[in-house]
Design a binder for these strands. Structure first.
Length: 272
DNA sequence: CTGGGGATGGGGCCC
DNA sequence: AGGGCCCCATCCCCA
């Protein structure tokens, strides 16, 4: 089951272009077979994640919260616009309220409330007891037995706490998942070279390779090497006669899902 | 137009 | 619980 693509659409339209043409000349063969991605020692210092709430402006197109969640003013997007990151090099100063410059996310405890939803109506409560009281008073069994799905819904499901993102309408069943998601809003990992911000340290590491030219993932079949394992995987498909992604109608195979999608979109099979 | 490379995003899993 | 990594996916660009 695909995972990430289900929620990505918010961000897809405005990707900055970070192409570095000089990288092509540095695609040297690396004799090691599929080493783990590692950064040179010199990069260890740049892996620090810096809080940059001001970059949050790029998320303007994110839907407003649909739920009455608590929003800390300090975490709100800055109205000042993008900040000159080059002038604020290594923040990790500890006075940031968000995450203190650490890699884990801001959510201060008082801003992350699990919400309990009534399965019979759309009301939400910040405590289980409040929900129970609501259900007892408003949805007695005799009152809700005629609800369409009342019998099929388990009590556990209805009272499972959910954690809402205060920046968008997404909700999660675990605090960890929510924290991970919030990073996509706060983008705490900033490239010291260009100021580009990322949600996770390893994304930043991959990005830094675009500056350093490091390509730790080498193809065993040719001399190419890649900075990203996924790109190597896609490349390996080009060495295969039978590609991984096959058109269901014409049996033609493709090395990438996107190519298959293009193929389908072009009307190869549907046009007939 | 097509195929491929580069860059990036995000949920889930593992440690 | 949190960080790192895996895997999958997408978009852009170029040959």
């Amino acid at each position: 089951m695909p995972r990430s693509f289900l929620v990505k659409k918010y961000f897809t339209n405005k990707k900055p272009c970070y192409r570095e043409s000089h990288l092509d000349s540095q695609a040297a063969f690396i004799p090691e077979s599929f080493p783990r991605a590692e950064l040179p020692n010199q990069d260890s210092s740049v892996l620090t994640c810096y809080p940059v709430t001001s970059l949050f402006n790029s998320m303007d197109n994110i839907p407003l919260p649909l739920f009455p969640v608590t929003v800390s003013p300090s975490l709100s997007p800055s109205p000042m616009g993008p900040v000159d990151l080059s002038s604020s090099p290594s923040c990790s100063s500890g006075d940031e309220e968000d995450d203190g410059g650490r890699t884990s996310d801001p959510p201060s405890p008082d801003t992350l409330h699990p919400m309990y939803h009534c399965m019979h109506c759309s009301k939400s409560y910040s405590s289980l007891s409040a929900l129970s009281h609501h259900q007892m008073s408003q949805h007695q069994p005799s009152q809700c037995s005629d609800l369409p799905h009342a019998s099929s819904l388990s009590h556990e499901v209805s009272t499972r706490p959910t954690f809402h993102c205060k920046h968008c309408s997404k909700e999660y069943t675990s605090l960890g998942a929510l924290k991970m998601h919030i990073r996509s809003h706060t983008l705490p990992c900033v490239c010291p070279t260009c100021g580009k911000a990322f949600s996770r340290p390893w994304l930043l590491r991959g990005h830094i390779r675009t500056h350093t030219g490091e390509r730790p993932f080498a193809c065993q079949h040719c001399n190419r090497a890649f900075a990203d394992r996924s790109n190597l995987r896609a490349h390996l498909q080009t060495h295969s006669e039978v590609k991984k992604y096959q058109c269901g109608s014409c049996s033609r195979t493709f090395s990438r899902m996107s190519l298959l999608h293009k193929h389908n979109a072009s009307g190869c099979c549907s046009a007939h």
